[in-house]
């Protein structure tokens, strides 16, 4: 950009190129392994690939087939139930715990890590722990019987209609503490003078939170929603470890559906189509969020 190239020294020009050079490996990896792969999978979803990729275009047959499969419908409706409950309950628990912890609680330093530690565990460990804890034969139900509560029944994990809720329980256990931390950070970021002003204006505790604090937590709600929603769509390990998709197919989610159709049932085209739909779901959630994030930070 210098107006006279002969005066511009070599070093300055080099300095203009180094940053781009340094960034290029990451950009190249990203373009190939993320966006290239996405395009490839999208392409596959329009082919008749079975066990191995094939490149014959067959139109939208895979999508038509996919939406005609009862297993896919089960997975999608399971995801709808799971995501709704998971997001709502995590947000509710997270917000409640954050607000309660923000009341000058003695021992906050002890409680916070207890709420948070499950997020350090892998979903496989979480699944193993809960699978057993919820097993009627040896877990909670068994214990209650031993303690004399003979009529106690808690067999959801073996029940086709209820098993999906056990996944919700385990997932909430794992992530709600993290949501709590997000809300707590939001609460701590609120200007104390606003709260004082509201109290002078005569707001009761309840209306203080409802009218002032919770609206101010909007950014935390948004972040929590985005993080939880994308975790819900990606959920795979937890199902594998907790129920293995069962009983029967009662707890299949799109992520497990994709895996089994692609790699064990050799319906690669259909699997690819299901992955594309998962990606589109996440894109619909993420795009507005990313857009606003990038715009604001300019």
């Amino acid at each position: 950009m210098a107006s006279r190239a002969d005066d511009a020294d070599f070093r300055t020009k080099l300095q203009e190129w180094i940053p781009k050079l340094v960034l290029s490996p990451s950009v190249a990896l990203m373009l190939v392994f993320v966006y290239g792969f996405i395009l490839y999978t999208i392409y596959l979803s329009f082919t008749g690939s079975k066990m191995l990729p094939k490149y014959d275009l067959i139109g939208i047959d895979n999508y038509v087939r996919l939406w005609g499969l009862s297993a896919w419908w089960t997975a999608v409706s399971n995801l709808a139930v799971f995501a709704t409950l998971y997001i709502t309950i995590c947000t509710a628990i997270g917000l409640t715990l954050a607000i309660l912890l923000d009341q000058k609680i003695r021992g906050e330093g002890m409680l916070r890590p207890i709420y948070l530690y499950p997020m350090a565990l892998s979903f496989i460990v979480t699944g193993t722990a809960w699978k057993w804890f919820l097993d009627p034969g040896i877990g909670l139900e068994h214990t209650m019987h031993l303690w004399g509560w003979e009529s106690f029944e808690f067999g959801w994990i073996k029940d086709r209609n209820m098993a999906i809720y056990t996944i919700v329980i385990a997932a909430v256990w794992q992530t709600s503490g993290f949501v709590m931390a997000m809300f707590l950070a939001g609460l701590r970021g609120i200007d104390n003078e606003i709260l004082k002003a509201a109290q002078i204006d005569g707001a009761s505790n309840w209306s203080l939170y409802r009218r002032i604090v919770i609206p101010l937590l909007r950014p935390a709600f948004l972040s929590a929603f985005v993080i939880l929603a994308h975790l819900a769509v990606k959920s795979y390990d937890l199902v594998i470890a907790l129920t293995g998709g069962g009983p029967g197919r009662a707890t299949e989610l799109p992520a497990t559906f994709m895996y089994s159709y692609t790699f064990t049932r050799n319906q690669m085209g259909t699997g690819a189509a299901s992955a594309v739909i998962m990606l589109m779901t996440i894109a619909a959630i993420m795009m507005p969020y990313l857009y606003s994030e990038l715009k604001e930070k300019k």
Binding site: S3, A8, T12
Partner: peptide
């Protein structure tokens, strides 16, 4: 960067100099 014109110090044009 300088879009147009020159800046010089001690008679040396500095456009594009680090």
């Amino acid at each position: 960067d300088i879009t147009g014109g020159d800046i010089s110090i001690r008679g040396r044009v500095m456009n594009g100099v680090h």
